[in-house]
Measured scan of single mutants.
Amino acid sequence: SKGEELFTGVVPILVELDGDVNGHKFSVSGEGEGDATYGKLTLKFICTTGKLPVPWPTLVTTLSYGVQCFSRYPDHMKQHDFFKSAMPEGYVQERTIFFKDDGNYKTRAEVKFEGDTLVNRIELKGIDFKEDGNILGHKLEYNYNSHNVYIMADKQKNGIKVNFKIRHNIEDGSVQLADHYQQNTPIGDGPVLLPDNHYLSTQSALSKDPNEKRDHMVLLEFVTAAGITHGMDELYK
């Protein structure tokens, strides 16, 4: 796709999030870079409003799984890469995230190029959380598991539907599940690639910047598309 050509090198990323969870309002600002050749993201996020009212790991899918245009699609799968094909005009990404036995996040993001920078601007609203639950009670460990993110075409809306389940580790050794339902639709009216069913395999590492006084998260992530085999004719070339 034409959009794919915008991702040949390292691309700067800007992320802006405004959130409200159970009436606790907050903002997060992030910057870093993405390299789609390797499916690599390096980002640093800062809570610009003081202390973040929710655990950082609960925002990873909104912040970095928010820029799935940096996923590495192998050559034989490039015609299934909706995310890059929607660029530079970008796409709207909407999600509902259900935390098992707790509340939910609803998010709406616009992901697009502004100049040479890929920008992810998000509004997040969280409701029905227990004040002493795993999320508002800050009981999650500061780490992140690997996940597969399942993608299918949504021809009606000229976009994709995505769903997956995140496993958050809790300090007591148990797990907090979070079910994600995602819809992506193009902002522009140019042609986009509608994929066959496949998935993104994601690995994320969270860390801290020892010199950063503000509440923050440093993230390194690798994302690769998989799940579609080479056609038989490919094998015999």
Rank of each mutant, 00 (worst) to 15 (best):
D179Y: 09
K25T: 06
G231A: 15
G137E: 07
K106G: 04
D75N: 09
E4R: 14
H168R: 00
Q156R: 10
A225T: 05
T58A: 05
E89D: 09
D75Y: 08
R167L: 08
F113I: 04
A153V: 04
N158S: 11
P53S: 01
Y199N: 06
A36P: 10
T107I: 02
M217V: 03
G227V: 09
K78N: 04
Q183P: 00
L219P: 00
G159V: 05
Y150D: 07
A86G: 03
Y181S: 05
P210H: 05
I13T: 02
K155I: 04
G23D: 03
L235R: 11
Y38F: 13
T49A: 04
K100T: 10
R108C: 07
N143D: 11
Y236H: 12
F7I: 05
T202P: 02
L14R: 14
G3S: 13
I127T: 14
T202A: 07
N169D: 13
I46V: 15
V15F: 02
F83C: 05
E123K: 12
M87I: 05
N197S: 14
I127L: 15
N22I: 02
F45S: 02
G188S: 11
P186L: 05
Y199F: 13
D128A: 10
D35H: 12
A36V: 10
K125E: 07
L177R: 08
N22H: 04
D116N: 15
Y199S: 07
S71I: 06
T62N: 01
E31A: 06
L206Q: 02
I135N: 03
S201G: 06
D154V: 05
H230Q: 13
M232V: 12
F99Y: 05
A225V: 04
V21E: 00
D132H: 07
L43P: 00
V192G: 14
G137V: 02
E94A: 09
T224S: 14
P191T: 09
K125Q: 13
H76L: 08
H168P: 00
V162E: 15
V21I: 10
V54A: 01
G190V: 15
H147R: 05
A86T: 12
F113Y: 08
Y65F: 00
I166N: 04
I228V: 11
T49S: 10
E114V: 13
A178P: 01
Q68R: 01
T185S: 09
N104C: 15
K106Q: 13
I97T: 02
